[in-house]
């Protein structure tokens, strides 16, 4: 497996995302610029300019026509993927920590940071790709989080629920239409750094600074699996095709210079999703992994690190061939598709 290194950013990466067909990677970093890359060869398609502060988050709609970003300049922006044109800017009182499109691409969610004079909130906007720059200024829904601030959030299947991860390790469930509070659990002891969905969004994986990642059901918030590591986690992803999860993290950025790369544990960890066992690691970054994203087609993954690099990996045969004894006996060979 020869990774492709993308070095278009000058500062730490904050999020990387594949589009639905897995052919384009979007990356955002603290250097104010959004980059789009072809995942196949690492060629940079273009850059999106306009943000005035560090960027925290990016997401692309299912048809790869619209791109949403949010950052420390207190704006959430909508872009045309193909041309890099800025379509819409929404201004807020505090920075945007996370954006996500609904599965049908018709709603956009943003998480606003808690600041003095500003509460943490989830805002939802209706998006119409046909309208171009004429997007609605008024949010369709606003959920105010008045206790522990929200760090991450996302839409469930059919945008039925909004799942929110909190700073104190709680995960809450809200109605996607009315914004009504429905349920809450406390799976983690420290702040939740990432939530990523399974392909059908019936379950998700949460990553936390408490060094664990958990697989949680969307509807009943049942903790299905737990993966305990030895380092604070910044991101976790569920792989399609094979039953694995990828966890990324590493020592906090501020402690990095005092430790060697080996000690810092800057590796992507592969765990078996079902058996909750670590099956391998991929080394390469010399800083913590801030985000890991999986190609929705299951052929590869990429990671964005504090070191300013995006590393794109295309899995080779050993990845697909690996299966546990029991999986072989069942004849599924460890692939989700075979089992269905």
């Amino acid at each position: 497996m020869r990774p492709i290194l993308l070095s278009g950013h000058e500062r730490a990466l904050t999020q990387v995302k594949y589009n639905k067909d897995g052919d384009i990677i979007f990356s955002v970093s603290k250097d104010h610029i959004v980059c789009a890359w072809y995942s196949a060869n690492g060629e940079r398609l273009g850059t999106y300019h306009g943000h005035q502060g560090a960027l925290w988050t990016v997401d692309v709609d299912p048809t790869s026509t619209l791109l949403a970003t949010g950052g420390a300049d207190n704006t959430m922006r909508l872009w045309e993927v193909e041309t890099g044109k800025l379509l819409k800017t929404w201004d807020f009182g505090s920075s945007i920590k996370r954006v996500e499109f609904s599965p049908d691409g018709r709603q956009l969610l943003g998480v606003t940071e808690k600041r003095v004079g500003h509460v943490s909130s989830i805002v939802v906007y209706d998006i119409d790709a046909e309208k171009g720059t004429e997007q609605s200024d008024e949010h369709a829904l606003r959920i105010v989080i008045d206790y522990s601030k929200a760090t991450v959030a996302g839409f469930s299947y059919h945008a039925k629920y909004i799942i929110v991860g909190h700073e104190d390790g709680k995960i809450s469930q809200w109605d996607g239409k009315t914004g009504e509070w429905l349920n809450e659990i406390e799976p983690h002891e420290a702040d939740i750094t990432d939530i990523q969905w399974a392909p059908d969004r019936t379950y998700f994986i949460s990553a936390s600074k408490d060094k664990t990642a958990k697989l949680i059901g969307t509807t009943d918030l049942e903790i299905m699996k737990s993966y305990a590591t030895d380092t604070p986690l910044n991101s976790a992803a569920i792989t399609p095709i094979k039953d694995y999860v990828i966890l990324g993290g590493g020592q906090a950025a501020m402690d990095v210079t005092t430790t060697s790369a080996r000690q810092g544990k800057f590796e992507a960890r592969f765990w078996h999703k079902i058996f909750e066992e670590e099956i391998g690691r991929v080394r390469g970054h010399f800083g913590p992994l801030n985000y890991v994203a999986v190609d929705p087609t299951g052929k590869g993954y990429c990671s964005g690190g504090e070191d300013g690099y995006v590393r794109v990996h295309h899995f080779d045969k050993t990845y697909f061939d690996f299966a546990y004894e029991v999986e072989r006996e069942l004849g599924t060979n460890g692939t989700t598709q075979a089992r269905i």
């Binding site: 497996m1 492709i4 290194l5 610029i33 060869n41 690492g42 940079r44 398609l45 273009g46 391998g280």
Partner: peptide, 27 residues
């Protein structure tokens, strides 16, 4: 291409894209 890549030729550019050393990954 658009943005800073505007007008550059097709194919990965060596200033932004490099290939890393081979990583043995065997689950």
């Amino acid at each position: 291409k658009f943005g800073v890549e505007n007008g550059r030729k097709v194919g990965p550019q060596s200033d932004t894209t490099t290939v890393g050393e081979n990583i043995e990954f065997k689950p």
